[in-house]
Amino acid sequence: MHSVMQQPFKTAVLILVWGWLLFLVLAPNLLVVGASVMTRDPATFLSLPLNLDAYRQLFDPLYLEVFLHSLYMAAMTTLVCLLIGYPFAWALSKVGKQRQLILIFLLIVPFWTNSLVRTYALKLILATNGLLNNALMSIGLIDEPLQLLYTEGAVIIGLVYLLLPFMILPLYSVFEDLKQELLLASHDLGAGRLSTFINVIVPLTLPGVLAGVMLVLLPAMGLFFVPDILGGSRNLLVGNVIKNQFLDARNWPFGAAASIVLTVTMAFLMFAHRLSKRRIGEEGA
């Protein structure tokens, strides 16, 4: 391949990619790491000496509780996304090419609208005088409006709505690669539908599941505006803690340390993802 590529062009691409990674990925992250080991200072935000106080503060039972609750809501979001996304992606891979294009297009269209605007729209739907309650009352399903807005459920609905495509797309790609021959072979060897699903389809689509989980779980802990708008500033996510530390409490080292925890969790998940891919690759070989 590289023999085809012109040398100057290759160099330019490499400089661009490395430059991008160095200045826009590595440098900001190093700044965050740097901030997390400094001392908080009311006048200048950050000061010396270096220490690990911010990380120690993370183990305060309070923040542990926020982190766990945030993880719980993100996990629920991921689960719901998986339950909807898995059959959706499967069905998507079964329909004709023309329809596939249209469906994927429809999946992506909402991204053209800012997610903040879409979250406000969701608020109008879930409100006490909102569309959903009015519709349910007019068809006589309920007499009193349901309290949907400003609940944990509303936050999860919001997160699922915003993140569902990130679950569907990687799943779709593994279903596309799923070889029909393997399924036929499974049938020929006497496996029933359930057995084929559990022993063949699930293991083969696992990398897609893990990729989807990664793309949903971590962002779900960071989208602070969803609890702010739909959760009534309650049901906090780790993202809210980070935002509050930077803006309200003015404790930058702690805010930085909290965001590093998210980054490390992400790295851990990616590592798990690679492991699973390698394992499946070996089995397939």
Partner: peptide, 19 residues
């Protein structure tokens, strides 16, 4: 003052995350 602010901030966070 900053010392009291940190005390408020901690309890505020506790208040909003408590259930």
């Amino acid at each position: 003052g900053d010392d009291a602010l940190q005390v408020y901030a901690k309890y505020w966070e506790m208040l909003k995350s408590g259930r």
